[in-house]
Design a binder for these strands. Structure first.
Lengths: 108, 108
DNA sequence: ATCGTAGTACGAAATACATCGTACAATAAA
DNA sequence: TTTATTGTACGATGTATTTCGTACTACGAT
């Protein structure tokens, strides 16, 4: 079984978290996970970029500690690390996702 | 009297705000302004970079709408746009500045 | 009029980032 | 065992970002 590296809760860096959230595509991913709690394969997000770019963005989010990625077969189950984020940076996720545009749903 | 361009309250972009806040030097500036409300000249921040780099970071913050810059003589009075930010992105500033390290005071 | 102070303009260099295409790996299903 | 599905690795490319040094401007003080 393959597995991917994740920073521990206590290792989350604000720099990395904010950099990750500064990109609109990554906010789209995070927003979707927040709006549809649970796990979702990368393909479920209908991102307006190619597969390899998509891989890149998911990795940035994982390495920043924003999401968890667990293999299941060939797919990856992505989920938001809501509790860890709330513990380290209380209010941040809500403040970033709050904003007016709930462009957080898949287009398809 | 010289003056500098600022985005209006309603024009603030989350993208720009988060990108601005993703840089530690700029967070140091914002944190200092939040901790010591009022106006402060650029030189008062004891930033670990040269003057020209400093100018760059202040401009990024101003253009993102995080700070207001008003000339007074040759100096610039910098202040945090707390209310505008709170109106557009409630809770964001507090969430970003909250974190453990109150490294927000000038070193000198 | 000269000098000092506060910050800018401009160009350069190094690094980082977002994006893509193609080839590949791992798993599941047929 | 073949095929389809999901996502990765790698390299390339174009753009942005951070940083600096030097020369400059605007203003206040002498």
């Amino acid at each position: 079984m393959r597995s991917l590296a994740h920073p521990k809760k206590g290792e989350l860096q604000l720099d990395a978290v904010l950099s990750a959230l500064a990109d609109p595509i990554r906010r789209q991913i995070v927003g979707y996970l927040a709006a549809s709690p649970g796990t979702h394969a990368c393909g479920a997000f209908n991102l307006p970029v190619t597969k390899s770019t998509s891989t890149h963005h998911f990795r940035v989010l994982r390495e920043a500690g924003l999401i968890r990625q667990d293999y299941q077969g060939t797919a990856i189950l992505n989920s938001l690390r809501t509790e860890d984020l709330e513990a380290q940076f209380p209010g941040l996720l809500q403040a970033v996702l709050q904003p007016t545009n709930p462009r957080h749903l898949p287009i398809g």
